[in-house]
């Protein structure tokens, strides 16, 4: 009896001692991007009691994979509403998987949007275009939320840049995204180049774009790729750069 009381007291004492340590360690884990998932009650309703329990007790990633595979199957059956729902669950369960966000955005902005544009069930073109635009926005939304959860990694910035470029023709925004990606560790070496290319297509940013392209050009032979040369020449013309400042004409 006395021993039970002593053990209980020791247990609580140990709890008290480790309380500040664990709080600070949890904080440190979070700032290193661990334990980012916020599993709410709405998720429990969606993935079921068992899946929720598994997710809470150390098998979050595994449950996320299962949901992801379900999403993949739904995509094969072109059930777009289900694809959206399942990807939302998968990304909630594992917000640190760049792959999930990227795939979710791609399915929405590229696949679902195109399917909507050709959807015979929709009454007219106007509605189809509206639906297409909605899916593109959903894709964009996935990428933006993905970036919020993974601000330390370049991949989703690159994907968002592609989306702005290909789906929304917003070259200025695409350029900003490429530039952000380029600043992060592990970025592809073409990110800086792509940022400059996109800027060169953005009306009103010609001067900026010219300077960026010229800087790259000056870095040396390895940056002087055909597209870069073409865009640089185009801007030299457009901005009326003095001849002696222009890059040499190889072909002519």
């Amino acid at each position: 009896m006395i021993r039970g009381v002593i053990i209980g007291a020791l247990l609580l004492l140990f709890g008290g001692l480790r309380l500040p340590i664990e709080s600070s360690l949890t904080e440190q884990h979070r700032s290193a991007y661990f334990h980012q998932a916020r599993l709410g009650l709405d998720l429990r309703e969606q993935i079921g009691q068992l899946g929720f329990l598994a997710a809470l007790s150390g098998f979050r990633s595994l449950v996320a994979d299962v949901v992801f595979i379900q999403a993949h199957v739904a995509w094969e059956r072109t059930e777009w509403g289900r694809v959206l729902l399942l990807f939302r669950q998968a990304t909630t369960l594992q917000p640190r998987s760049v792959l999930f966000w990227d795939m979710a955005a791609w399915h929405m902005a590229w696949n679902a949007s195109v399917a909507a544009l050709h959807d015979e069930a929709l009454p007219n073109d106007l509605v189809r275009r509206k639906a297409q635009r909605e899916y593109i926005d959903l894709g964009k939304d996935f990428l933006e939320r993905g970036i919020k959860n993974n601000p330390d990694r370049p991949q989703l910035y690159e994907s968002l840049a592609r989306l702005y470029k290909e789906k929304l023709q917003n070259h200025a925004a695409a350029a900003t995204c490429y530039a952000r990606a380029a600043a992060l560790p592990g970025a592809a070496e073409y990110d800086n180049r792509f940022a400059a290319y996109e800027l060169s297509f953005a009306p009103g940013h010609e001067r900026e774009a010219y300077e960026a392209l010229r800087r790259l050009y000056d870095l040396g032979e390895h940056e002087r790729l055909p597209t870069l040369l073409t865009r640089l020449k185009f801007l030299e013309e457009k901005l009326g750069i003095p001849l002696y400042e222009r890059i040499p004409d190889k072909e002519k």
Partner: peptide, 17 residues
Amino acid sequence: DLQLFNLVDDIVAGTAI
């Protein structure tokens, strides 16, 4: 606190420790 010992989930997703 067992959650502190669940790091592989996020490591697989590419988080560095």
